[in-house]
Simulated scan of single mutants.
Amino acid sequence: MRKLMLLCLLGLGLNANAQYQQDVVSGDAIIKALYDVISGPSSKTRDWDRFRFLFGKEARMMTAVPHKDSGTIIRTITPEQYIERNGKRLQEIGFIEKELHRITEAHGAVTHMFSTYQSDFTVNGNAQQSRGINSIQLFYDGSRYYIVSVFWDGDSKKTIDKKYLGN
Rank of each mutant, 00 (worst) to 15 (best):
G142L: 13
N134S: 06
S149V: 10
F95K: 00
T116W: 05
I30A: 05
E80T: 10
L54A: 07
M61E: 11
S143C: 03
I77K: 12
D47T: 03
I31S: 03
M113P: 00
S119P: 01
T116S: 15
I31A: 02
A33C: 09
F114M: 12
E97A: 10
T76K: 13
I133N: 00
G132P: 01
H101K: 01
K88M: 12
Y146I: 04
K44D: 05
S115T: 05
E58M: 08
T78A: 10
F139P: 00
V123W: 12
A106W: 06
R144C: 03
F114Y: 11
D120V: 08
A33Y: 06
L90R: 07
V123E: 15
Q129S: 15
F121D: 00
R46W: 02
E58P: 01
F121I: 02
H107D: 15
K32R: 14
R102T: 08
G40M: 02
A59D: 10
G125N: 06
S149A: 14
K88Q: 13
Q81L: 10
F114G: 03
I38G: 01
A64P: 00
K57G: 09
K68Y: 14
S135G: 06
M113F: 02
P66Y: 08
D120T: 12
F55N: 01
L54I: 07
T116P: 06
Q129W: 03
V123C: 07
L100E: 11
I74T: 12
A29G: 08
L54V: 06
I133T: 04
S135D: 09
F55V: 05
N134D: 13
I73P: 00
R60M: 11
F51K: 02
V150H: 06
Y35A: 03
F55C: 03
Q129G: 09
K88I: 11
D49R: 09
D120F: 09
E84K: 13
T76R: 10
S149G: 12
N86R: 13
Q118N: 09
Q137W: 13
K32C: 01
S42H: 04
M62A: 14
E58A: 14
F55G: 01
